[in-house]
Structure formats: C-alpha cells, structure tokens
Amino acid sequence: MYNGGKIIIGLAIFLGIATLPFFSNIGTAVKRPEPSLDTPVIKEVQAQLGRKDVCVEPKAFMQANHMRLLNEWRDSALRQNKRLYISSDGRKFTISLQNTCMHCHSNKKEFCDRCHNYMAVKPYCWDCHIAPKERGGQS
C-alpha cells in the first residue's frame, strides 16, 4: 500500500467511529426501565374500576403518545381554556398536569424520570409547572 501509514490511521479512526456503540457500553449494566405504577391513588382507582389499565387512555397508547397528549392538553387548557377531557372509554378528566396526571402519578422519580433518563430526554414540563414533592420529603 502506498502512503500506508496515513491510510491505516484513517481506517483506524473510521473503525473507531463505526464501532463506537459497541465499546462505549462495555461495563455498563443495561437494563430496560420499568416505570412504577405503585402509588396509593392508582391502586385505589384500579380497585374501583376492577382492572389494571386505568390511565386516561390505554397503556400501549400512553407509552407511545403521552407526549403528544400532554401537548394537546396544554394547548387545550392554556390557549382555548377547555379543561374537560373525555377519554376513549368515556370517562371525564380535568385537563391538568399537576392536578390530574401527577395526582395519580405522584412518584415522578419512579415514573416519569425512569424512562426519560434512560432515553436521555429532558422534557421542559417543569420549566413552568411545579414539580411534585416526592414522598418522604424529597424535592
């Protein structure tokens, strides 16, 4: 090979970039996060409705679409002053992050943050809203 030294350095850089995901994870325990639904209010609602899936919309929908729903809720509440949400199964909810969502999901650290940290997503909810006080007096 002509100019072999330079080309091999270039190829080594290429190889480093192309295999970056493989060696950057060595030694880290990779585990899929499980958001916790273990709060008193959720348990109460589950008992009341007699099923596990009690959020405003079904679990599969919420997993993929909660950010879109929250965005629609924000626009509806703040820009159109409409605070009534009727879910797909006919239940009525007040559109409010702090009083509806966080009323049940009072465990932000075990619920919101688990997946958001895993995905390295930093939603800007709490720029405006007051983050709920964690149980046990943590902020």
Partner: peptide
C-alpha cells in the same frame, strides 16, 4: 408513534 423505550431496548 412507537414506544421509544422498546426501541432503545
């Protein structure tokens, strides 16, 4: 929309 956590998994 997909479940992004599943994708990262």
């Amino acid at each position: 929309k997909v479940n992004v956590v599943g994708v990262k998994n």
